[in-house]
């Protein structure tokens, strides 16, 4: 297990290193002069030159890469050109919305998908299975912003239980924060839950056909016991893969939902930064997202090893 963890950690660090190089190359090197690009076509040469100095573009590229990465390691992401504030502060504000939102949505996804998938698998071909499969088909087909609008119409406008958008901040209490994130989290979670439930169901059905389920039944376990004690944990292995992918999507892909609910999240930040050509912000946010995704994949790898003892001995 220790060797497996060390192996995964090494791969994590290498991925981060490669990702930082790619991002740096794409954003800073490829399109030519970032300063000219940020200022637009009509900028005066002396303004461009001033910006170049300000951004530290007058030193060599390797030196800039080194300054950028070491800066990030010590928490210094540079200054936003458009907002004239430290990027780290902007990111920090947004991270406290996006990460809780993604985690919240993921929790809901799992809470909906696991019971639905297990229920459908245990009633294969019967009415319960058909109902779940029909519902998940619908969930997969409908985009999440449509769910978002319906939720707003019902719970914010009609029933007035929730506000239709905005985020009051965590300083007003955990409950207030979670309440503000509930509708967006549900809207994000529903399509993901539909996908995950289908994966869970088919993975479980595969497991129920395995020989060891027959062995379990021969020991005297009833169907239900065989399913819960022997099939579910084995079925988790493919499900974990999907959960890892879904978290990445929920983190960065929440932009449409953030727009619908006026949430100050990372998705909106990067969207605004791209529109205003604020390359410093773009580069830092992308790097942060990459970091989070890689860390999540690392967590998924560790979860695999917890579920499957065969991975612990193999390297």
């Amino acid at each position: 297990m220790i060797r497996y963890t060390i192996g995964r950690l090494t791969s994590l660090c290498l991925s981060l290193l490669v990702a930082s190089m790619v991002i740096f190359a794409v954003v800073e090197v490829v399109p030519g002069d970032p300063a000219a690009y940020m200022l637009g076509v009509n900028a005066r040469p002396d303004t461009v030159a001033a910006l170049r100095t300000e951004l530290g573009l007058d030193v060599s590229k390797p030196e800039r890469y080194l300054a950028w990465t070491t800066g990030m390691l010590s928490g210094d992401f540079g200054q936003s050109y458009t907002y004239r504030t430290p990027v780290s502060q902007m990111i920090l504000d947004r991270v406290w919305v996006s990460v809780p939102l993604a985690l919240f949505a993921l929790t809901l996804t799992i809470l909906i998908a696991f019971p639905a998938g297990i229920y459908a698998a245990s009633r294969r071909g019967r009415a319960g299975d058909m109902t779940v499969m029909g519902a998940t088909q619908f969930g997969v087909a409908v985009p999440n912003f449509w769910f978002a609008m319906i939720l707003v119409l019902i719970f914010a406008i009609k029933l007035r239980w929730f506000s239709a958008g905005g985020f009051p901040g965590w300083e007003n209490g955990l409950f207030t924060g979670l309440k503000a994130l509930l509708l967006p989290a549900i809207a994000l979670a529903l399509p993901q839950a539909a996908i995950l439930a289908r994966v869970m169901r088919s993975s479980l059905l595969d497991m129920l056909n395995e020989d060891f389920i027959r062995t379990a039944r021969a020991k005297g376990l009833n169907r239900r016991q065989a399913l819960w004690r022997h099939a579910v944990r084995n079925a988790l292995i493919p499900v974990l893969t999907i959960i890892g992918l879904q978290f990445s999507f929920l983190l960065a892909g929440g932009i449409v939902i953030e727009q619908v609910f006026f949430l100050p999240g990372l998705g909106r930040l990067i969207f605004q930064a791209i529109s205003s050509r604020d390359l410093i912000v773009v580069e830092s946010v992308v790097m942060l997202l990459v970091f989070l995704v890689i860390v999540v994949n690392f967590a998924v790898d560790l979860a695999y090893a917890l579920v499957d003892p065969r991975l612990r001995t193999r390297s």
Partner: peptide, 8 residues
């Protein structure tokens, strides 16, 4: 080879 649960 397959009659036993691999994760127990």
């Amino acid at each position: 080879m397959t009659a036993l649960n691999p994760v127990q």
